[in-house]
């Protein structure tokens, strides 16, 4: 049986640079919505739920591209999603073709430097994840 994304806790160090004092937790998820790695601030069950939630956010965000186009719709138009809550922010950023970085922060976060930092992490992640052979990446779904 073809299987899905395997957790890779050994990649957690790559999230070290994300951990600003205002960051609550961060998770790297694969396109199938399953966790690749997560920071220690979030337990395994919540990381799974956060990843599923982010996958759904990404699906809806990518689908919105249809209504933000000059006619030539492309799903790859999506780069990032920012959610503002009364309790903070959730960043969702593409990290290579098959992975995303989700970061939850407090309201006090300084958006500019934080965004810059997350994008730097995403660059590294993209390079690292691009070399990982993934199963469950079949074309059938």
């Amino acid at each position: 049986m073809n299987t899905n994304t395997v957790r890779r806790p050994e990649l957690r160090w790559m999230l070290d640079d994300v951990l600003l004092p205002e960051v609550r937790s961060a998770v790297v998820l694969a396109r199938d919505g399953l966790v690749i790695t997560a920071t220690g601030e979030i337990d395994e069950a919540d990381a799974d739920r956060f990843a599923a939630c982010l996958a759904s956010l990404r699906a809806a965000s990518a689908a919105s591209a249809e209504f933000c186009t000059d006619g030539s719709t492309s799903e790859s138009a999506w780069n990032q999603t920012l959610v503002e809550l009364s309790t903070g922010y959730v960043f969702l950023i593409a990290a290579g073709p098959h992975a995303y970085l989700g970061v939850s922060t407090t309201k006090q976060v300084d958006m500019g430097p934080a965004t810059q930092r997350f994008h730097a992490v995403v660059q590294k992640l993209g390079a690292e994840l691009g070399t990982i052979p993934r199963s469950g990446d079949s074309e059938r779904s």
Binding site: M1, T5, A30, G33, S56, A63, G136, S141
Partner: peptide, 11 residues
Amino acid sequence: SLWEDLAYGSL
């Protein structure tokens, strides 16, 4: 359209 994206990787 959402469904298609969320279905990715399902067995």
